[in-house]
Design a protein around this nucleic acid. Structure first.
Lengths: 250, 250
DNA sequence: TACTTTCGTGCAATTTCGTGCAAATATGGA
DNA sequence: TCCATATTTGCACGAAATTGCACGAAAGTA
C-alpha cells in the first residue's frame, strides 16, 4: 500500500462520513495506529483536515459540501438508510434489493469491508464509489420500471449465493396481508433471495405501512427486522408491534 | 520488450488502478525494480504521473480514473456514438460492452425496437429511458474501475446469448498488436461475447488509435467494422486502412 | 481523583531510492 | 561484415523514507 494512496483513502473517508477515526482506519487497513496518526498529522499540516482526539474532522464545513449536505438534509428515507447501513458488519455478504429505499442505504454505507450482491444496476452504480466493497451483479431480464433483473438468469445466479443479510424492498407492509409488491416475477425473485439469506431486513417509509400490493413476497413474521419511519400513523405501528418481528422506528 | 511499450503499460495500469506499485510491475514483467523506477522517473519528468515512495500516482491527487475519462473528448465521443447507433436495426439483439464510448451510443439511440444485452450496470441504467428497448443484464463480479461484470457468472450468462451486433470497447487499437484492453478477465469476456455475436463493431477515439494495452482481445481483422474519429493522426488512419476491416471515420 | 484511551517522540528494522558502474544489446557507418 | 558508439539493463551501496514498538505525557471519562 502506497502512503499517498492511503492518505487519499483517508480524505475519501473524511469526505464521505464527515469524520475519520484513527483506530477504525488502522483496523480496516491492517496497519498500526501510529501510521494512521502520522498520516493524519501530515494531512493536518497540509491543511487538508483538522486533528481531533481520536481522529480527524473536516477543516471547515465548506470543504466537504457533500458530506455535510447529506447530514443536513436528512429526510425520512435518509434516516431509514442510515439505520439500515448500521446493520452491516465487516466481512458480511449483503444482498441489496432494488428501489429508492435501498439506494439510500448505499448512500450511507460506513467503512466496513463487505461483499455486496444486487440485481439492480442502479444500486451497483451507486456502490462504485465504495472501493472497499466488492460487488457481485445478478443478471437477468431487466424489469421496465423497477430496474431489477428477474427471470431464469437471475434465478440461477441467486441459487449460487449465500448471504448473511438481505435488504428487501417492498411496496406494501400489512399485518395480515404481509409484505407485497407490484410484480409477480419480482416477488418470486425476492422470495428466492430471502431463502438464500440468513436475515432479511425490510425498510418501510410511512406510505408503505398498511398498504397492500397485488403479489405477496412473505409474511411479516418471515423477516428478522423491520425498520419503519416514526412518522407512520401510530395505529399502524401498534399493529406491527403485535407481529412477531423486531421493529425499529427512526 | 520495447521501452515505450513498457511505459505505455505503466500508464495503463495507472489509469486503470489509480496507482502503480514499482515492485508489483517489476515482478509482473520479470524485470528489475531499477528499470521500472527509471521508467517512473522519466514519465514523471514528462509530467505524466507523480512519483511517490513505492511507485506512482496520477498527476492530479484527487483524480478518479473513470471520472476523468468521462469528461474527456466530449464532442468526439458523441459523434462516434451517433454513427454507431445508426447501425442498429429494428428487431436486432445488440450487446453493449462497458466504457464511455458505448455509453455514448446509448445516448444517441433511435426509435428502433431491439433487444439490448450488457454486462455494464452503467449502460443498463442509461438504457432505462428507452421504453421500447428490452434489456438483459449480464451478472458477475464487478470490476472495480471499469464497472463491468466478469467471471464465471458472466461467462455462463453470455453462453446463453446469441446476438446480431456487439459494440466492443477497447483501450488500444493497433494494426499489429490488435485490439487490446487493460484487464485479462475483461479481455476474456469480450472475446466470449464476440464469439456469440454476428458482427462486432469497435468505436475508437483518437487517443486509442495506435495505443497498446496489456491484454489482447482480438485482431483488427476479426471485427466487422471500425468507427474511428477523423481527428486521429492521418498516418495511423492510413495504417488501419491497410488492414482488412471496414473503416468509418466521423 | 482514578482509570482508560489517545498522543507524541525516540529508536530500530525494513523497504525503497538514487547514483555510479559494468555488462548486454541496439544502432549506424565504413 | 566489423567496429565504434549509444542505449538499456542489472547490480552494489550508501542515503532516505516508512513502519511498528516502547514509554511517558496529555486528554477524555466516570
Amino acid at each position: 500500500m502506497l502512503t499517498n494512496h492511503r492518505k487519499q483513502l483517508i480524505l475519501d473517508i473524511l469526505a464521505r462520513q464527515g469524520q475519520v477515526v484513527a483506530k477504525q482506519v488502522s483496523q480496516d487497513l491492517n496497519l498500526s495506529e501510529d501510521t494512521i496518526r502520522r498520516d493524519l498529522r501530515e494531512l493536518a499540516a497540509d491543511g487538508l483536515l483538522m486533528r481531533v482526539h481520536g481522529g480527524a474532522m473536516p477543516v471547515s464545513p465548506t470543504v466537504v459540501p457533500i458530506a455535510q449536505r447529506r447530514t443536513m438534509a436528512q429526510g425520512e428515507k435518509a434516516a431509514l438508510g442510515k439505520a439500515a447501513a448500521a446493520q452491516i458488519q465487516e466481512g458480511m455478504t449483503v444482498v441489496f434489493d432494488g428501489g429508492t429505499s435501498n439506494l439510500e442505504i448505499v448512500r450511507h454505507l460506513g467503512p466496513a469491508r463487505f461483499n455486496a450482491v444486487t440485481h439492480s444496476p442502479t444500486i451497483a452504480v451507486a456502490l462504485e464509489e465504495y472501493p472497499h466493497v466488492d460487488v457481485v451483479l445478478i443478471g437477468g431480464k431487466l424489469m421496465r420500471h423497477s430496474m431489477v433483473a428477474v427471470g431464469a438468469l437471475a434465478s440461477e445466479a441467486i441459487a449460487r449465493i449465500r448471504a448473511d443479510l438481505f435488504f428487501l424492498g417492498v411496496t406494501g407492509v400489512h399485518v395480515e396481508e404481509g409484505l407485497t409488491t407490484g410484480d409477480m416475477e419480482e416477488a418470486a425473485i425476492k422470495r428466492q433471495i430471502m431463502a438464500r439469506s440468513g436475515e432479511t431486513i425490510v425498510l418501510a417509509t410511512a406510505d408503505k405501512i398498511g398498504a397492500v400490493s397485488p403479489f405477496r413476497v412473505a409474511d411479516i413474521g418471515d423477516v428478522a427486522s423491520l425498520i419503519v419511519s416514526a412518522s407512520a400513523p401510530q395505529d399502524q405501528i401498534d399493529l406491527l408491534q403485535g407481529a412477531s418481528v423486531t421493529l425499529t422506528t427512526v
